[in-house]
Amino acid sequence: MTAGQQPGRGRRARLYALTDGRTTAPGAALTMDTLITARVAPDADGSLPTEWQAILGMCQPPNGRAVAEIAARMHMRLTPMVLLLSELVERGLIQHRPPLQANETSNVHLLMKIRDNLARI
């Protein structure tokens, strides 16, 4: 996509002003199906914003939750939720697990395991 030629391109830069320079944390490419798991208890630090505590509470290990699921439960859209979660990653409050990559999703042994497990649900 030649986004550089789009008329909206120039205005998009204003996001930097809105988020104090933050878009997503470097290296932390969170997608809608990235699994988020808390690294601390929700009440580990009483000074954490209520919103953050709510997020930590819903993804306590071993129950990781997808970014989309956290967004839905927090009534936020995906993009602002990704920004918020990136902040939590940077602060070491959560860890993230990327979705399976192409070399894994084409692995016949994994696919057969998924099939076997699905057949039993």
């Binding site: 699994l35 993230h96 697990r97």
Partner: peptide, 16 residues
């Protein structure tokens, strides 16, 4: 990549 832990015995996400 900060916070990315491959050692945990947790499920990997995948979508259909």
């Amino acid at each position: 990549m900060p916070g990315y832990d491959t050692s945990a015995q947790e499920e990997s996400p995948v979508k259909i």
